[in-house]
Amino acid sequence: MKRRIVMIYVGLLSGIVLCSGGCGTEANAGKDRIVAKVLADASAAPISEEAQDPGEGSLQQEEEEETDYVNGEEYVFPVGEVTLRTDMDADEAVEELGEYKSVFKAPSCAGEGTSYIYTYDSFEIETYPTEEGKNLIGYIILRDDTVATAEGIDLSMTRSDVIQTYGSGYEEAQNSITYEKNGTKLNFIFDGEELSSIEYVSAVIG
């Protein structure tokens, strides 16, 4: 009987240990999703969707491709020689973009990395950390009319210009409309009829 009890204990503990090892991958995958969502900024209102492969949108790969911004599969922001998109590697993008005006760091209260806000002359990039220690782009915000979306919309334009260019397939909030294409979001915010902000938003965090 004693032997049977010992066998039960050993069996249970082995089960736990095996489960720890065997379930680890799945559990970690779940945790990755959670951490990928952590703190694009303290003010973000994330939506729960799976993180994209961080390597998917690398600049190197971008250079090799023939760029077709307008008919592309995602919303992208071309700036000079660089093409930015949300959820791409932010460190690589920052290196390619060259000197920024300023950077602001917002560390996570949950001890899960830091988000960075890089300010350039006409736009801003906000990053979010992943568990693997990478920083991905969470937001790209266009700040003045010297830069435009790949489809040619800039801040000097109006609501009707936007709808004429992007069509009627948008989601509407109080003062904004949002277009979504393959997990990338393009958000237009208005002050009356005038455009007041253009944002590329990661579907992972917001």
Binding site: S102, I117, T119, Y139, Q174, N175, S176, E199
Partner: peptide, 14 residues
């Protein structure tokens, strides 16, 4: 405190 980012505009402040 330096380089505090400009406020992000919101589509809905409610």
């Amino acid at each position: 405190a330096e380089n505090i980012p400009e406020e992000r505009k919101l589509g809905d402040y409610r």
